[in-house]
Design a protein around this nucleic acid. Structure first.
Length: 478
RNA sequence: GUGCCUAUGGUGUAACGGUUAGCACAUGAGUUUGUGGUACUCGUAGCGAGGGUUCGACUCCCUCUAGGCACCCCA
């Protein structure tokens, strides 16, 4: 960088002709362009945010846990595109759902095609299953993914327009044990993270028995139509299943006398569901049968479930940390082989991170350096640059403060960082090919051969810690 | 998408229809030459944006934007 002169006042040209109208015109044009005025900072789009290092420790923890669980259960990683044809989501999630109707980022791309930012990834996973002929692989085909999803919803705590999910999908097998295993995986991920969760579970059967049930449910509420709120009347019209999780007092009372979906399941569905529950009991996953649990996507069949914080259970506004279910019609709906079963779930990373934060779980983003490098003069900097590389290869993180020149200021930073050792390299040391190792706690210094410093520091660190903390591999990002 | 609440330097905050908008933390430079934790000095940096009411607005009103909460919905 070329050093810039300190702020200088630009001499005002007294003779400069005053132009009153011109700047105003320029400004106007800019505004019409929809650009932010120069000099103004850019605001984030509503519901979008930067995830800073404060959160990265938790995010890493979550991603690492997800990844190791995925590997332990032999799920294969899949990267799915963020943009898909709109039709993919319209067909699967359902045209009448809020997600498709008002929350999707849908636009026409330059080739005049309607595309959408994915609001979730299950549909994409099913699409991938079909388009790569995965039905010719041994079933089930198990995959997992993580990445951003987009929904134009009104932002709220734990709810953003760009949010991250980690999901697991299993295609090709309709055994209840598949459902159970997925639930176990989700449950164990959350548990391993230190969260006390319960599984809310229900079965909504096949499309056929659900239709029969819905007719009955609507008929029941029709009798009490005058007691219902406008909102619930609307639901009765549009999506009667949703009336089950109405928060309206009257409706909740009415629900007690309402027909229950479990009574309308056909024998096979019932048996499937009972087996899932039995498996869960067997592995001691705490679950609550919630006959009012329905989920917002049309493709679900049979088992549906959500992971809810246990201490949230009584709370009115309990947020699910994740949820999922079986979707036996999904592959067929997308033109794949008829009757291909599938089951999966997704976890909301922000919500989990929030829950961890509430519990005071906040691991550091990366191991804090125990060594600081202080430099004096250009010659020292040149050698220092190489030294950093030597330490890096020895897997010892080293901090610095290149913005400071005074040794005093550098030691100040070292102190604030809480490092154990500071390496001091000045002009004198450069000439002697030595370097000073300063023990920050005792203040003791020794002058050592610069060529041996890496080994010496390594030894010292080992000695201090007993175990070797620096050999830990850096935290992997999923 | 609906309703309610909120908005002051990077962070947390104070005040007032008229003051150089105060404080703390953080940050930068320094308290003589190459040695940290304390102390001191000085500096950088703010009324979310745009309109109105008013002699005068950070303060009152409106709109927008953003955040929070509830609803809707959902991860």
């Amino acid at each position: 960088m070329i050093p810039m002169p300190a702020k200088k006042k630009v001499p005002t040209k007294a003779t400069a002709p005053k132009s009153v109208t011109k700047p105003a015109v320029v400004k106007k044009e800019k505004e019409e362009d929809g650009e932010q005025k120069s000099g103004k900072t850019f605001d984030l789009l509503r519901g979008f945010r930067d995830i800073l290092s404060d959160d990265q420790g938790r995010w890493n923890l979550i991603r690492d846990t997800v990844r190791s669980m995925a590997e332990a259960y032999s799920f294969d990683r899949i990267e799915l595109p963020i943009l898909e044809r709109s039709e993919l989501f319209n067909r699967t999630i359902g045209k009448g759902t809020d997600i498709v109707e008002k929350e999707m980022y849908t636009f026409t791309d330059p080739s005049n095609r309607s595309v959408s930012l994915r609001p979730e990834a299950t549909a994409s996973a099913a699409r991938a299953y079909i388009s790569h002929g995965m039905l010719d692989r041994p079933q089930p085909v198990k995959m997992w993914y993580t990445g951003p999803m987009f929904r134009h919803d009104r932002p709220q705590a734990g709810r953003y327009r760009q949010f991250y999910q980690a999901g697991f999908e299993s295609f090709g097998v309709n055994e209840p044990i598949v459902d159970a295993q997925l639930i176990v995986i989700g449950y164990q991920i959350l548990r391993e993270l230190g969260l006390d969760v319960k599984v809310q579970i229900n079965s909504i059967g096949t499309t056929e028995c659900r239709q029969a049930y819905l007719a009955e449910l609507v008929a029941y509420f029709r009798q009490h139509r005058n007691k219902l709120s406008d909102e619930d009347k609307r639901r009765l019209q549009k999506n009667p299943l949703r009336i089950l999780d109405s928060k309206e007092e009257v409706t909740r009372e009415l629900l007690e006398g309402a027909p229950q979906i479990l009574d309308w399941l056909d024998d096979k569905s019932k048996e499937h569901f009972m087996k899932v529950l039995e498996f869960l009991e067997e592995v001691e996953v705490p679950f609550v049968l919630n006959p009012y649990l329905v989920r917002g996507l049309d493709y679900y069949t049979h088992t549906v479930f959500e992971f809810v914080l246990a201490d949230d259970e009584g709370a009115k506004a309990q947020v699910a940390l994740g949820g999922g279910g079986r979707y036996d019609g999904l592959v067929e709906l997308l033109g794949g082989r008829p009757e291909t079963p599938g089951c999966g779930f997704a976890l909301g990373i922000e919500r989990i991170s929030r829950a961890l934060e509430a519990k005071g779980i906040n691991p550091p983003e990366r191991p804090q350096p125990q060594v600081f490098f202080a430099q004096l003069g250009d010659a020292a900097r040149r050698i220092g640059l190489q030294l950093f590389e030597d330490f890096r290869q020895a897997k010892i993180p080293v901090a610095e403060a290149f913005g400071k020149n005074a040794l005093k200021a550098q030691l100040d930073v070292a102190n604030k960082l809480g490092v154990q050792f500071t390496l001091i390299l000045g002009q004198k040391e450069v000439l002697d090919e030595t370097i000073i190792i300063r023990d920050m706690e005792s203040g003791a210094q020794e002058i050592v051969d610069v060529k041996k410093v890496v080994g010496l520091v390594k030894k010292k660190l080992r000695h201090e810690e007993g175990v070797d903390p620096i050999m830990q591999s850096p935290v992997e990002v999923a």
